[in-house]
Design a protein around this nucleic acid. Sequence first.
RNA 1: GGGGACGUAGCUCAGCUGGUCAGAGCGCCGGCCUGUCACGCCGGAGGUCGCGGGUUCAAGUCCCGUCGUCCUCGCCA
Length: 636
Amino acid sequence: MSLSAGPQGAVPASRPAMHRYRTHRCGEPRSEHVGGTVRLSGWIHRKRDHGGLLFLDLRDHTGITQIVVHPDRPFFAEAERLRLESVVSVTGRIVARTPETVNPTLATGEVELVADALELLSAAEPLPLVVNTEREQPEELRLRYRFLDLRREVMQRNIRLRSAVIRTIRRLMHEQGFTEFRTPILTASSPEGARDFLVPSRLHPGKFYALPQAPQQYKQLYMISGFDRYFQIAPCFRDEDARADRSPGEFYQLDVEMAFVTQDDVFAAIEPVMVGVFEEHKQPGWTVSPAPFPRLAYDEALLRYGTDKPDLRNPIRIADVTELFRGSDFKVFANAIEQGAVVRAIPAPGAVGRPRSFFDGMVAFAQSLGAPGLGWIALEPAGARGPVAKFLGEERLAKLREVAGLATGDAVFFACAKPAEAAKLAGAVRIELGKQLDLLEKKTYRFCWIVDFPMFEWDEEEKKITFSHNPFSMPQGGLEALSTKDPLEIKAYQYDIVCNGVELSSGAIRNHRPDIMEKAFAIAGYGREELERRFGGMLRALKYGAPPHGGIAPGLDRIVMLLADTPNLREVTAFPLSQRAEELLLGAPSPVTEKQLKELHIMLDHVAREKLREEAERAAAARAAEASGAAEGAGG
RNA sequence: GGGGACGUAGCUCAGCUGGUCAGAGCGCCGGCCUGUCACGCCGGAGGUCGCGGGUUCAAGUCCCGUCGUCCUCGCCA
């Protein structure tokens, strides 16, 4: 439907034919365009109707231009009726605004477009959510009407940021002599690791492809094939539950692998890429910690930060004070220590002035995490105060100050538990204190490497030794370590990059020796035969000349999330799945036909059939309710 | 699988210890308005208070269940 004589009618015949939709973008008009005839197309962002004069803010991805519609125009009445987010094409003259009507908040604010023709390209129904606001909108509606949500300025910025980050990564990787490769999406399920997404095979009844959790084996095969330096912006699929910083279903990694390298070579290759990307795309005023990044051993990270992904913006360092409490008058701790517990001190710098509710709140916080409680001491000028203070003599208090780095005016909390639990509790308290005391450095990206991860760990559930990370990692000390050391003592050439408490990537120097691999898998309980069956392809590849190699895989989505300074991956993902792994716009996952199932030799069990039936009923009821509501509305 | 938060008009929210509690702003519809830029003014429509059950003389309000969204523990080599 046209609101004017049509675009052609608006252009004098003497001018060269105008583009059907636009001569400029909505963010472009400037003073230099004054007097020119232009055509803009875009969405109606806002409307200000003065009756005798109508202003439309016309928006596209480049910005907004104010359109002025005068009442003598034949399309005036219909322009007044245009709903927000309708798509129109406007043709007219760019005119300078008078000084008092200039809008300095708009890039195009010195000019405006006086409409001579206006064509409605696509009418919008009343909106289910508000586009022209940064106000919060319900998550479900945002996902269901993602195309509207993505029109909002922040989302436009975030999605473009992702694209720009990828462009920079590709440039930096190519500059370092890396080549981009692809790897299969339909691949084989592998034991260990996350739950696979499975794809049934039509040609092979009863067999399944798996979507790759990461292109791990394929990138190693590229190395073995002699390609030397691989990278890929790689899609990864894991069927695990979501978190704010963990997309359900699928995510992307900057997947990297290098041949003939040591751990230091990998670090040296990836550090400039991370710094480069962050420097290039950080927001104004932010700083990036320079390379080389500090390296923390896994054990030390657990002790000093209570986590293997420490946020170095938080100045609090945890200290082990077990010996201070051993044999002390504080029997709760002293007795626990005899039972194998440790005590960790978490300093709370400058917390002495805090009200009692602060300390009680921290105790409650610890209890909410399952701890029996949380001891604390406040080092006031007049002396130590708090429930634990009276049990420590002057000597022990002095030692505590020294070990935990405390000064008068500080408080300190104590976590007492078995080492792993104590670390976890202390880590959580450290983070909470950082928040409550507002201790975190602002506008800073602080990177670090976590190195020397354990090769194996004890699986309490299965009562056996398992790989603690990547089973293809090279154990430090090689075959000899595997043969002579306590497996739980063996470290791997396994490392993570952490930035601001976010685990950005993990990587490893791989195990390229079949004999060492056989031994490592034996320790994790895989016999030769099973290893052959599950990793036969990989093992075979290692037997024909495999270069030493290693790599890393920074999470792309998390990088963009950090750069966008948002706590949630959905904010930097165009079409994310919901918490329950559903795509609410097109509707995935969805039921399939009997025919499709039959071709795949798949039968649904009664649980699945019942769920589908219930869901179909609910949907039908919802449709019926909507239909009757609509009928009433029409009748009234 | 466990724990938590939230769910009141299309959207953002208010609604206290159960008793004029069916409200506001924005949006929508109608009217007025020639310099606004979150335009303004007047009027109107719109709600099974997510759904189901219970307690009560009385339930957005209390209890139980359920659905949905999010956060989180488990899980994520």
